[in-house]
Design a binder for these strands. Sequence first.
DNA 1: TCGGCAGAAATTATCTATAATTTTTGAGCC
DNA 2: GGCTCAAAAATTATAGATAATTTCTGCCGA
Lengths: 222, 222
Amino acid sequence: MTNHPDDTIASRISRALADRIISGELAPGQRLRQDHVAEEFGASHVPVREAFRRLEAQGLAVSEPRRGVRVASFDLREVREVAEMRAALEVLALRHAVPHLTPAILDRAAAATAAADSSRDVRSWEAANRAFHRLILEPCAMPRLLAAIDDLHAASARFLFSAWRSSWEARTDHDHRAILAALREGDGDAAMAILGRHVQWIGRTPVRNATGETREVFSIVG
Amino acid sequence: MTNHPDDTIASRISRALADRIISGELAPGQRLRQDHVAEEFGASHVPVREAFRRLEAQGLAVSEPRRGVRVASFDLREVREVAEMRAALEVLALRHAVPHLTPAILDRAAAATAAADSSRDVRSWEAANRAFHRLILEPCAMPRLLAAIDDLHAASARFLFSAWRSSWEARTDHDHRAILAALREGDGDAAMAILGRHVQWIGRTPVRNATGETREVFSIVG
DNA sequence: TCGGCAGAAATTATCTATAATTTTTGAGCC
DNA sequence: GGCTCAAAAATTATAGATAATTTCTGCCGA
Protein backbone atom coordinates (compact mmCIF):
# COMPACT_ATOMS: atom_id res chain seq x y z
CA MET A 1 0.00 0.00 0.00
CA THR A 2 1.39 3.42 -0.90
CA ASN A 3 1.79 5.02 2.48
CA HIS A 4 2.76 8.64 2.13
CA PRO A 5 4.59 9.78 5.18
CA ASP A 6 2.73 12.00 7.57
CA ASP A 7 -0.49 10.48 6.34
CA THR A 8 -2.31 7.73 8.14
CA ILE A 9 -5.06 5.51 6.79
CA ALA A 10 -7.44 6.90 9.38
CA SER A 11 -6.86 10.47 8.18
CA ARG A 12 -7.32 9.48 4.56
CA ILE A 13 -10.64 7.83 5.37
CA SER A 14 -11.64 10.82 7.45
CA ARG A 15 -10.95 13.24 4.62
CA ALA A 16 -12.73 11.10 2.06
CA LEU A 17 -15.83 10.76 4.21
CA ALA A 18 -15.80 14.43 5.12
CA ASP A 19 -15.74 15.26 1.45
CA ARG A 20 -18.72 13.03 0.77
CA ILE A 21 -20.69 14.43 3.66
CA ILE A 22 -19.96 18.00 2.62
CA SER A 23 -20.83 17.38 -1.02
CA GLY A 24 -24.09 15.75 -0.01
CA GLU A 25 -23.15 12.40 -1.47
CA LEU A 26 -23.83 11.02 1.98
CA ALA A 27 -27.24 12.20 3.12
CA PRO A 28 -27.92 13.63 6.58
CA GLY A 29 -28.98 10.94 9.01
CA GLN A 30 -27.48 8.18 6.90
CA ARG A 31 -25.78 5.43 8.85
CA LEU A 32 -22.07 4.91 8.44
CA ARG A 33 -21.26 1.24 8.94
CA GLN A 34 -17.69 0.71 9.93
CA ASP A 35 -17.26 -2.67 8.30
CA HIS A 36 -18.63 -1.43 4.99
CA VAL A 37 -16.38 1.61 5.03
CA ALA A 38 -13.44 -0.54 6.05
CA GLU A 39 -14.06 -2.92 3.19
CA GLU A 40 -14.38 -0.10 0.69
CA PHE A 41 -11.05 1.39 1.70
CA GLY A 42 -9.38 -1.99 1.96
CA ALA A 43 -8.67 -1.46 5.63
CA SER A 44 -9.86 -2.89 8.88
CA HIS A 45 -12.37 -1.09 11.06
CA VAL A 46 -9.90 0.24 13.62
CA PRO A 47 -8.72 3.20 11.52
CA VAL A 48 -12.33 3.65 10.42
CA ARG A 49 -13.36 4.15 14.02
CA GLU A 50 -10.66 6.78 14.44
CA ALA A 51 -11.90 8.54 11.33
CA PHE A 52 -15.40 8.54 12.82
CA ARG A 53 -14.14 10.23 15.97
CA ARG A 54 -12.58 12.98 13.92
CA LEU A 55 -15.74 13.52 11.91
CA GLU A 56 -17.64 13.65 15.17
CA ALA A 57 -15.35 16.38 16.47
CA GLN A 58 -15.83 18.35 13.26
CA GLY A 59 -19.57 18.19 13.70
CA LEU A 60 -20.04 16.21 10.48
CA ALA A 61 -21.19 13.01 12.17
CA VAL A 62 -22.92 12.03 15.38
CA SER A 63 -22.24 8.85 17.28
CA GLU A 64 -24.39 6.97 19.72
CA PRO A 65 -22.44 4.41 21.73
CA ARG A 66 -23.14 0.88 20.59
CA ARG A 67 -25.65 2.15 18.07
CA GLY A 68 -23.37 3.39 15.39
CA VAL A 69 -22.49 6.61 13.63
CA ARG A 70 -24.72 8.73 11.44
CA VAL A 71 -24.12 11.66 9.16
CA ALA A 72 -25.04 14.74 11.18
CA SER A 73 -28.34 16.26 10.23
CA PHE A 74 -28.78 19.98 9.99
CA ASP A 75 -31.66 22.38 10.00
CA LEU A 76 -32.09 26.11 9.60
CA ARG A 77 -31.23 26.68 13.27
CA GLU A 78 -27.84 25.11 12.78
CA VAL A 79 -27.22 26.99 9.54
CA ARG A 80 -27.75 30.21 11.46
CA GLU A 81 -25.61 29.02 14.33
CA VAL A 82 -22.68 28.22 12.07
CA ALA A 83 -23.07 31.50 10.21
CA GLU A 84 -23.00 33.51 13.42
CA MET A 85 -20.02 31.63 14.79
CA ARG A 86 -18.18 32.21 11.55
CA ALA A 87 -19.01 35.90 11.66
CA ALA A 88 -17.70 36.24 15.20
CA LEU A 89 -14.51 34.28 14.60
CA GLU A 90 -13.68 35.54 11.11
CA VAL A 91 -14.03 39.14 12.25
CA LEU A 92 -11.70 38.38 15.12
CA ALA A 93 -9.21 36.73 12.77
CA LEU A 94 -9.36 39.63 10.35
CA ARG A 95 -8.68 42.11 13.14
CA HIS A 96 -5.42 40.34 13.87
CA ALA A 97 -4.61 39.73 10.22
CA VAL A 98 -4.95 43.33 9.08
CA PRO A 99 -1.54 44.52 10.35
CA HIS A 100 0.16 41.69 8.48
CA LEU A 101 -1.66 41.94 5.16
CA THR A 102 0.51 42.75 2.19
CA PRO A 103 -0.42 43.96 -1.30
CA ALA A 104 0.68 40.57 -2.61
CA ILE A 105 -1.81 38.79 -0.39
CA LEU A 106 -4.59 41.14 -1.42
CA ASP A 107 -3.75 40.52 -5.06
CA ARG A 108 -4.05 36.79 -4.54
CA ALA A 109 -7.36 37.32 -2.74
CA ALA A 110 -8.59 39.38 -5.68
CA ALA A 111 -7.59 36.55 -7.99
CA ALA A 112 -9.57 34.12 -5.85
CA THR A 113 -12.60 36.39 -6.08
CA ALA A 114 -12.26 36.51 -9.85
CA ALA A 115 -11.98 32.74 -9.95
CA ALA A 116 -15.16 32.45 -7.90
CA ASP A 117 -17.05 34.79 -10.21
CA SER A 118 -16.11 32.79 -13.28
CA SER A 119 -16.90 29.42 -11.71
CA ARG A 120 -19.21 27.18 -13.68
CA ASP A 121 -20.22 24.94 -10.78
CA VAL A 122 -20.80 25.13 -7.04
CA ARG A 123 -17.79 23.06 -6.13
CA SER A 124 -15.20 25.27 -7.75
CA TRP A 125 -17.03 28.36 -6.52
CA GLU A 126 -16.86 27.04 -2.97
CA ALA A 127 -13.16 26.26 -3.30
CA ALA A 128 -12.42 29.76 -4.59
CA ASN A 129 -14.58 31.35 -1.91
CA ARG A 130 -12.81 29.39 0.79
CA ALA A 131 -9.45 30.38 -0.66
CA PHE A 132 -10.43 34.04 -0.46
CA HIS A 133 -11.39 33.83 3.19
CA ARG A 134 -8.29 31.83 4.09
CA LEU A 135 -5.98 34.22 2.29
CA ILE A 136 -7.09 37.30 4.15
CA LEU A 137 -7.40 35.55 7.54
CA GLU A 138 -4.28 33.37 7.59
CA PRO A 139 -1.88 36.23 8.46
CA CYS A 140 -3.51 36.46 11.90
CA ALA A 141 -1.22 33.52 12.79
CA MET A 142 -3.66 32.03 15.29
CA PRO A 143 -3.67 28.33 14.49
CA ARG A 144 -6.46 27.31 16.82
CA LEU A 145 -8.71 30.06 15.54
CA LEU A 146 -7.99 29.17 11.92
CA ALA A 147 -8.69 25.49 12.58
CA ALA A 148 -12.05 26.36 14.13
CA ILE A 149 -12.89 28.55 11.15
CA ASP A 150 -11.95 25.73 8.78
CA ASP A 151 -14.38 23.38 10.47
CA LEU A 152 -17.12 25.98 10.26
CA HIS A 153 -16.37 26.47 6.57
CA ALA A 154 -16.85 22.75 6.05
CA ALA A 155 -20.22 22.93 7.76
CA SER A 156 -21.15 25.96 5.68
CA ALA A 157 -20.21 24.14 2.50
CA ARG A 158 -22.65 21.37 3.36
CA PHE A 159 -25.49 23.85 3.42
CA LEU A 160 -24.25 25.51 0.29
CA PHE A 161 -24.12 22.26 -1.66
CA SER A 162 -27.46 21.08 -0.36
CA ALA A 163 -29.10 24.22 -1.68
CA TRP A 164 -27.35 24.56 -5.01
CA ARG A 165 -26.79 20.94 -5.85
CA SER A 166 -28.95 20.95 -8.95
CA SER A 167 -28.95 24.46 -10.26
CA TRP A 168 -26.09 26.87 -10.18
CA GLU A 169 -25.51 30.19 -11.80
CA ALA A 170 -22.44 32.30 -11.61
CA ARG A 171 -22.72 35.28 -9.32
CA THR A 172 -20.53 38.26 -8.72
CA ASP A 173 -19.43 38.65 -5.16
CA HIS A 174 -19.61 42.36 -4.44
CA ASP A 175 -18.88 41.83 -0.77
CA HIS A 176 -15.50 40.32 -1.46
CA ARG A 177 -14.56 43.26 -3.66
CA ALA A 178 -15.78 45.72 -1.03
CA ILE A 179 -13.72 43.96 1.63
CA LEU A 180 -10.61 44.12 -0.54
CA ALA A 181 -11.21 47.77 -1.35
CA ALA A 182 -11.51 48.64 2.32
CA LEU A 183 -8.35 46.69 3.14
CA ARG A 184 -6.45 48.42 0.35
CA GLU A 185 -7.45 51.77 1.80
CA GLY A 186 -6.28 50.65 5.20
CA ASP A 187 -9.77 50.75 6.69
CA GLY A 188 -9.69 47.52 8.67
CA ASP A 189 -12.80 48.36 10.67
CA ALA A 190 -14.89 48.74 7.55
CA ALA A 191 -13.54 45.46 6.17
CA MET A 192 -14.41 43.70 9.42
CA ALA A 193 -17.93 45.12 9.38
CA ILE A 194 -18.56 43.99 5.81
CA LEU A 195 -17.07 40.57 6.49
CA GLY A 196 -19.28 40.11 9.54
CA ARG A 197 -22.43 40.88 7.57
CA HIS A 198 -21.22 38.98 4.53
CA VAL A 199 -20.71 35.71 6.36
CA GLN A 200 -24.10 35.89 8.00
CA TRP A 201 -25.98 36.53 4.79
CA ILE A 202 -28.53 33.78 4.42
CA GLY A 203 -30.73 33.78 1.38
CA ARG A 204 -33.82 32.06 0.16
CA THR A 205 -33.20 30.39 -3.15
CA PRO A 206 -35.57 28.54 -5.42
CA VAL A 207 -34.20 25.11 -6.16
CA ARG A 208 -35.41 22.65 -8.73
CA ASN A 209 -35.14 19.04 -7.66
CA ALA A 210 -35.01 15.89 -9.74
CA THR A 211 -38.75 15.74 -10.37
CA GLY A 212 -38.82 19.27 -11.72
CA GLU A 213 -40.58 20.79 -8.73
CA THR A 214 -39.35 24.06 -7.35
CA ARG A 215 -39.02 24.76 -3.67
CA GLU A 216 -37.39 27.43 -1.60
CA VAL A 217 -34.26 26.49 0.25
CA PHE A 218 -32.33 28.48 2.77
CA SER A 219 -28.69 28.69 2.11
CA ILE A 220 -25.60 30.28 3.40
CA VAL A 221 -23.51 32.14 0.91
CA GLY A 222 -20.32 33.78 2.14
CA MET B 1 -17.07 -4.84 33.24
CA THR B 2 -19.72 -2.41 34.45
CA ASN B 3 -20.66 -0.62 31.29
CA HIS B 4 -22.95 2.27 31.96
CA PRO B 5 -25.13 2.90 28.96
CA ASP B 6 -24.23 5.86 26.81
CA ASP B 7 -20.70 5.70 28.12
CA THR B 8 -17.90 4.01 26.28
CA ILE B 9 -14.46 3.07 27.56
CA ALA B 10 -12.89 5.49 25.09
CA SER B 11 -14.91 8.42 26.45
CA ARG B 12 -14.02 7.54 30.03
CA ILE B 13 -10.33 7.43 29.17
CA SER B 14 -10.67 10.67 27.25
CA ARG B 15 -12.28 12.44 30.20
CA ALA B 16 -9.74 11.12 32.65
CA LEU B 17 -6.79 12.19 30.51
CA ALA B 18 -8.36 15.58 29.79
CA ASP B 19 -8.71 16.12 33.51
CA ARG B 20 -5.06 15.30 34.09
CA ILE B 21 -3.90 17.54 31.28
CA ILE B 22 -6.03 20.43 32.50
CA SER B 23 -4.93 20.05 36.11
CA GLY B 24 -1.31 19.99 35.03
CA GLU B 25 -0.75 16.48 36.32
CA LEU B 26 0.40 15.69 32.80
CA ALA B 27 2.97 18.27 31.76
CA PRO B 28 2.95 20.00 28.36
CA GLY B 29 4.99 18.10 25.82
CA GLN B 30 4.81 14.89 27.78
CA ARG B 31 4.37 11.77 25.71
CA LEU B 32 1.23 9.71 26.04
CA ARG B 33 2.01 6.07 25.32
CA GLN B 34 -0.99 4.11 24.28
CA ASP B 35 0.07 0.80 25.77
CA HIS B 36 0.82 2.34 29.14
CA VAL B 37 -2.49 4.17 29.23
CA ALA B 38 -4.28 1.03 28.09
CA GLU B 39 -2.68 -1.01 30.84
CA GLU B 40 -3.51 1.57 33.48
CA PHE B 41 -7.19 1.60 32.55
CA GLY B 42 -7.30 -2.15 32.10
CA ALA B 43 -8.30 -1.78 28.48
CA SER B 44 -6.71 -2.49 25.15
CA HIS B 45 -5.20 0.27 23.07
CA VAL B 46 -8.04 0.62 20.57
CA PRO B 47 -10.24 2.73 22.86
CA VAL B 48 -7.09 4.57 23.96
CA ARG B 49 -6.42 5.62 20.40
CA GLU B 50 -9.96 6.89 20.07
CA ALA B 51 -9.55 8.86 23.26
CA PHE B 52 -6.38 10.39 21.80
CA ARG B 53 -8.30 11.55 18.73
CA ARG B 54 -10.79 13.32 20.92
CA LEU B 55 -8.12 15.03 22.96
CA GLU B 56 -6.50 16.10 19.71
CA ALA B 57 -9.74 17.67 18.54
CA GLN B 58 -10.08 19.50 21.85
CA GLY B 59 -6.62 20.92 21.43
CA LEU B 60 -5.33 19.20 24.54
CA ALA B 61 -2.98 16.86 22.71
CA VAL B 62 -1.06 16.86 19.45
CA SER B 63 -0.37 13.79 17.40
CA GLU B 64 2.33 13.09 14.86
CA PRO B 65 1.69 9.99 12.75
CA ARG B 66 3.88 7.09 13.78
CA ARG B 67 5.57 9.28 16.35
CA GLY B 68 2.98 9.25 19.04
CA VAL B 69 0.85 11.69 20.96
CA ARG B 70 2.03 14.45 23.25
CA VAL B 71 0.29 16.74 25.68
CA ALA B 72 -0.19 20.02 23.81
CA SER B 73 2.18 22.74 24.85
CA PHE B 74 1.03 26.29 25.29
CA ASP B 75 2.62 29.67 25.44
CA LEU B 76 1.45 33.20 26.01
CA ARG B 77 0.38 33.53 22.39
CA GLU B 78 -2.01 30.65 22.75
CA VAL B 79 -3.35 31.94 26.06
CA ARG B 80 -4.26 35.16 24.31
CA GLU B 81 -5.73 33.30 21.37
CA VAL B 82 -8.01 31.23 23.55
CA ALA B 83 -9.03 34.28 25.56
CA GLU B 84 -9.98 36.20 22.44
CA MET B 85 -11.89 33.29 20.97
CA ARG B 86 -13.76 32.89 24.22
CA ALA B 87 -14.59 36.58 24.29
CA ALA B 88 -15.96 36.49 20.74
CA LEU B 89 -18.00 33.34 21.23
CA GLU B 90 -19.25 33.97 24.76
CA VAL B 91 -20.48 37.43 23.79
CA LEU B 92 -22.31 35.86 20.86
CA ALA B 93 -23.82 33.22 23.11
CA LEU B 94 -24.89 35.80 25.66
CA ARG B 95 -26.59 37.87 22.97
CA HIS B 96 -28.80 34.91 22.15
CA ALA B 97 -29.23 33.83 25.74
CA VAL B 98 -30.43 37.19 27.07
CA PRO B 99 -34.04 36.88 25.82
CA HIS B 100 -34.35 33.52 27.55
CA LEU B 101 -32.77 34.37 30.89
CA THR B 102 -35.06 34.05 33.90
CA PRO B 103 -34.66 35.39 37.44
CA ALA B 104 -34.23 31.80 38.60
CA ILE B 105 -31.23 31.34 36.30
CA LEU B 106 -29.69 34.61 37.46
CA ASP B 107 -30.14 33.54 41.08
CA ARG B 108 -28.29 30.33 40.39
CA ALA B 109 -25.54 32.28 38.63
CA ALA B 110 -25.28 34.53 41.68
CA ALA B 111 -24.95 31.45 43.85
CA ALA B 112 -22.15 30.19 41.60
CA THR B 113 -20.38 33.52 41.97
CA ALA B 114 -20.67 33.33 45.74
CA ALA B 115 -19.33 29.79 45.66
CA ALA B 116 -16.36 30.98 43.63
CA ASP B 117 -15.61 33.79 46.05
CA SER B 118 -15.55 31.45 49.02
CA SER B 119 -13.44 28.81 47.32
CA ARG B 120 -10.37 27.71 49.18
CA ASP B 121 -8.55 26.23 46.20
CA VAL B 122 -8.15 26.81 42.47
CA ARG B 123 -9.99 23.70 41.46
CA SER B 124 -13.26 24.51 43.16
CA TRP B 125 -12.93 28.14 42.07
CA GLU B 126 -12.58 27.03 38.47
CA ALA B 127 -15.60 24.74 38.74
CA ALA B 128 -17.74 27.53 40.17
CA ASN B 129 -16.50 30.00 37.58
CA ARG B 130 -17.28 27.58 34.79
CA ALA B 131 -20.73 27.00 36.25
CA PHE B 132 -21.40 30.74 36.22
CA HIS B 133 -20.50 31.10 32.57
CA ARG B 134 -22.46 28.01 31.56
CA LEU B 135 -25.55 29.11 33.46
CA ILE B 136 -25.88 32.45 31.74
CA LEU B 137 -24.90 31.14 28.28
CA GLU B 138 -26.79 27.84 28.10
CA PRO B 139 -30.18 29.43 27.33
CA CYS B 140 -28.85 30.48 23.92
CA ALA B 141 -29.69 26.91 22.88
CA MET B 142 -26.87 26.72 20.33
CA PRO B 143 -25.27 23.35 20.95
CA ARG B 144 -22.34 23.72 18.61
CA LEU B 145 -21.47 27.10 20.04
CA LEU B 146 -21.70 25.83 23.61
CA ALA B 147 -19.51 22.85 22.79
CA ALA B 148 -16.86 25.13 21.31
CA ILE B 149 -17.00 27.33 24.39
CA ASP B 150 -16.63 24.28 26.64
CA ASP B 151 -13.44 23.26 24.85
CA LEU B 152 -12.07 26.77 25.22
CA HIS B 153 -12.91 26.73 28.91
CA ALA B 154 -10.89 23.54 29.27
CA ALA B 155 -7.94 25.21 27.59
CA SER B 156 -8.36 28.27 29.83
CA ALA B 157 -8.40 26.07 32.90
CA ARG B 158 -5.02 24.64 31.92
CA PHE B 159 -3.50 28.10 31.99
CA LEU B 160 -5.28 28.95 35.21
CA PHE B 161 -3.99 25.86 37.00
CA SER B 162 -0.48 26.26 35.66
CA ALA B 163 -0.30 29.75 37.12
CA TRP B 164 -1.99 29.17 40.45
CA ARG B 165 -0.90 25.63 41.13
CA SER B 166 1.07 26.43 44.20
CA SER B 167 -0.42 29.54 45.70
CA TRP B 168 -4.04 30.50 45.71
CA GLU B 169 -5.95 33.19 47.48
CA ALA B 170 -9.65 33.81 47.38
CA ARG B 171 -10.69 36.74 45.23
CA THR B 172 -13.96 38.49 44.76
CA ASP B 173 -15.16 38.52 41.23
CA HIS B 174 -16.57 41.98 40.66
CA ASP B 175 -17.08 41.34 36.95
CA HIS B 176 -19.48 38.50 37.57
CA ARG B 177 -21.56 40.68 39.87
CA ALA B 178 -21.54 43.52 37.37
CA ILE B 179 -22.69 41.17 34.61
CA LEU B 180 -25.54 39.89 36.76
CA ALA B 181 -26.54 43.42 37.75
CA ALA B 182 -26.69 44.50 34.11
CA LEU B 183 -28.72 41.44 33.18
CA ARG B 184 -31.15 42.06 36.05
CA GLU B 185 -31.65 45.57 34.75
CA GLY B 186 -32.31 44.22 31.30
CA ASP B 187 -29.20 45.86 29.85
CA GLY B 188 -27.93 43.02 27.70
CA ASP B 189 -25.49 45.18 25.77
CA ALA B 190 -23.72 46.28 28.94
CA ALA B 191 -23.55 42.67 30.15
CA MET B 192 -22.04 41.60 26.84
CA ALA B 193 -19.46 44.37 26.95
CA ILE B 194 -18.37 43.45 30.48
CA LEU B 195 -18.26 39.76 29.62
CA GLY B 196 -16.12 40.40 26.58
CA ARG B 197 -13.57 42.38 28.61
CA HIS B 198 -13.80 40.01 31.57
CA VAL B 199 -12.90 36.92 29.57
CA GLN B 200 -9.93 38.61 27.97
CA TRP B 201 -8.48 39.84 31.20
CA ILE B 202 -4.99 38.43 31.47
CA GLY B 203 -2.97 39.24 34.49
CA ARG B 204 0.61 38.96 35.65
CA THR B 205 0.81 37.06 38.88
CA PRO B 206 3.80 36.35 41.07
CA VAL B 207 4.03 32.63 41.67
CA ARG B 208 6.26 30.85 44.11
CA ASN B 209 7.57 27.54 42.89
CA ALA B 210 8.86 24.57 44.84
CA THR B 211 12.30 26.01 45.47
CA GLY B 212 10.89 29.17 46.96
CA GLU B 213 11.75 31.41 44.04
CA THR B 214 9.19 33.88 42.79
CA ARG B 215 8.51 34.49 39.13
CA GLU B 216 5.84 36.26 37.20
CA VAL B 217 3.38 34.14 35.32
CA PHE B 218 0.74 35.19 32.89
CA SER B 219 -2.63 33.79 33.56
CA ILE B 220 -6.15 33.97 32.32
CA VAL B 221 -8.77 34.66 34.88
CA GLY B 222 -12.37 34.78 33.74
C1' DT C 1 35.78 13.68 23.66
C1' DC C 2 32.49 13.81 20.29
C1' DG C 3 29.75 12.35 16.26
C1' DG C 4 27.89 8.79 13.59
C1' DC C 5 26.43 4.20 12.86
C1' DA C 6 24.66 -0.68 13.83
C1' DG C 7 21.62 -3.45 16.56
C1' DA C 8 18.16 -3.86 20.14
C1' DA C 9 14.20 -2.30 22.48
C1' DA C 10 10.16 0.18 22.57
C1' DT C 11 6.23 2.06 20.36
C1' DT C 12 2.90 2.90 16.86
C1' DA C 13 -0.40 1.48 13.32
C1' DT C 14 -2.78 -1.97 11.52
C1' DC C 15 -5.14 -6.50 11.01
C1' DT C 16 -7.66 -10.60 12.63
C1' DA C 17 -10.52 -12.54 16.07
C1' DT C 18 -13.93 -12.57 19.92
C1' DA C 19 -17.62 -10.86 22.91
C1' DA C 20 -21.60 -8.05 23.54
C1' DT C 21 -25.30 -5.37 21.87
C1' DT C 22 -28.75 -3.98 18.68
C1' DT C 23 -31.69 -4.64 14.74
C1' DT C 24 -34.12 -7.60 11.81
C1' DT C 25 -36.84 -11.57 10.67
C1' DG C 26 -40.32 -14.82 11.14
C1' DA C 27 -43.29 -17.95 13.41
C1' DG C 28 -46.98 -18.35 16.52
C1' DC C 29 -50.97 -16.32 18.62
C1' DC C 30 -54.85 -13.22 19.45
C1' DG D 1 -54.69 -9.02 9.46
C1' DG D 2 -51.87 -7.24 13.01
C1' DC D 3 -49.19 -7.89 17.36
C1' DT D 4 -45.69 -10.18 20.43
C1' DC D 5 -41.82 -12.55 21.46
C1' DA D 6 -37.78 -15.20 20.38
C1' DA D 7 -34.19 -16.70 17.48
C1' DA D 8 -31.02 -15.16 13.84
C1' DA D 9 -28.34 -11.85 11.51
C1' DA D 10 -25.88 -7.78 11.47
C1' DT D 11 -23.18 -4.51 13.71
C1' DT D 12 -20.49 -2.39 17.27
C1' DA D 13 -16.86 -2.47 20.79
C1' DT D 14 -13.02 -4.44 22.60
C1' DA D 15 -9.11 -7.71 22.91
C1' DG D 16 -5.08 -10.06 21.22
C1' DA D 17 -1.58 -10.51 17.70
C1' DT D 18 1.54 -8.90 13.87
C1' DA D 19 4.26 -5.83 10.98
C1' DA D 20 6.66 -1.59 10.49
C1' DT D 21 8.64 2.51 12.20
C1' DT D 22 10.98 5.15 15.56
C1' DT D 23 13.91 5.79 19.49
C1' DC D 24 17.36 4.32 22.48
C1' DT D 25 21.94 2.24 23.54
C1' DG D 26 26.44 1.27 23.12
C1' DC D 27 30.31 0.72 20.33
C1' DC D 28 33.67 2.27 16.97
C1' DG D 29 36.49 5.58 14.72
C1' DA D 30 38.08 10.25 14.01
